[in-house]
């Protein structure tokens, strides 16, 4: 295993401002990300992004370009800014400086509905209206595509059915949300995001409430969305091994900066674990997938 903490990739505007802390760098497998982007350009891009609550910057001068058709995992300790990055990418939070670009255009230049047709977010803590059923929740995902007039009519269209079955909640469709387990509810919300029929899907800690079985199912679903539906997925994950196993690219944040960025093998290393998570660990090769697997010492 090569020890490497590659510098954040590319966008030239960002390079100078970022991460002097990424000292131990020896760029290895990053070239795929670092090199000139493929023809269509990034689906979603953070350019020199600074985001903050009150006086403190949670993110400062962060740049990240997400290539279409990839699965990117954002990892980092609590307070590293990974969720803030995700919600800013989803336009839920406004940056203090810099901008987010969707298909090369600043988010602000798209109308709200146009963004919602291209980008869906699974929020971290979602409130469910009391008494609503799974179907009623998922139906709301159709709002950006159909608009308020069409939504006046109760409908079950193909997109809804597809979303329900993809998320594995087809059998629960008529159950009330408050009668479901946390994991089932989480999948209902994922179905709502899928019903938006977007190319981009942002997931904020999607596996948190799920048992092992459903965590695996969800991660397989993410892979299927990428392979069969050409979707681009960015997700915040707590479990580093999960990120290493399922993501094409792992971005490690700490203190609002990207410390390491690249394919799992380049990011999930003993050095990065020490620097980002303050964990002493050994990284071995996962005998099942060949991906890196870390074991705390």
């Amino acid at each position: 295993m090569t020890a490497s903490t590659p510098r954040p990739p590319t966008p030239p505007s960002a390079a100078p401002s970022i991460a002097p802390s990424a000292a131990s760098s020896a760029a290895s497998a990053v070239s795929a990300d670092g090199a000139p982007p493929p023809a269509p350009g990034p689906s979603l891009e953070a350019v020199d992004l600074s985001v903050g609550y009150r006086r403190d910057d949670v993110l400062s001068g962060l740049s990240l370009a997400v290539e279409p058709g990839t699965v990117t995992a954002l990892v980092g300790p609590n307070g590293s800014g990974k969720s803030t990055l995700l919600t800013t990418l989803a336009r839920v939070q406004r940056p203090r400086a810099g901008e987010v670009r969707l298909r090369g255009r600043a988010l602000g230049d798209w109308s709200s509905v146009e963004v919602a047709r291209q980008l869906a977010l699974l929020p971290q803590s979602a409130v469910a209206p009391a008494g609503a059923t799974v179907r009623e929740l998922v139906e709301q995902g159709r709002y950006p595509q159909l608009g308020p007039w069409a939504m006046l009519r109760r409908r079950d269209d193909a997109a809804m059915e597809r979303a329900l079955s993809l998320a594995g909640v087809g059998a629960l469709a008529d159950r009330r949300l408050d009668s479901l387990s946390g994991g089932e509810r989480q999948r209902a919300w994922i179905a709502m995001a899928l019903a938006q029929e977007t190319d981009l899907l942002l997931l904020d800690e999607p596996t948190t409430y799920l048992d092992v079985r459903h965590q695996i199912d969800l991660m397989d679903l993410v892979g299927r969305l990428r392979d069969e539906h050409a979707m681009t997925v960015v997700m915040v994950l707590h479990d580093l091994n999960q990120a290493a196993r399922y993501a094409d690219r792992v971005v490690a944040l700490r203190g609002g900066r990207i410390i390491a960025d690249g394919p799992p093998a380049a990011v999930v290393t003993a050095e990065v674990l020490r620097e980002v998570f303050e964990v002493e660990a050994r990284v071995v090769e996962d005998p099942v997938t060949g991906r890196p697997l870390f074991l705390a010492l």
Binding site: A90, V92, A116, R117, L119, L121, A128, L137, Q140, G141
Partner: peptide
């Protein structure tokens, strides 16, 4: 329809456009 969306919270409302 707007109220149905609002019921999901501000974050979901925003992401639904």
């Amino acid at each position: 329809p707007v109220m149905n969306v609002l019921a999901l919270g501000d974050v979901a409302t925003t992401t639904l456009g």
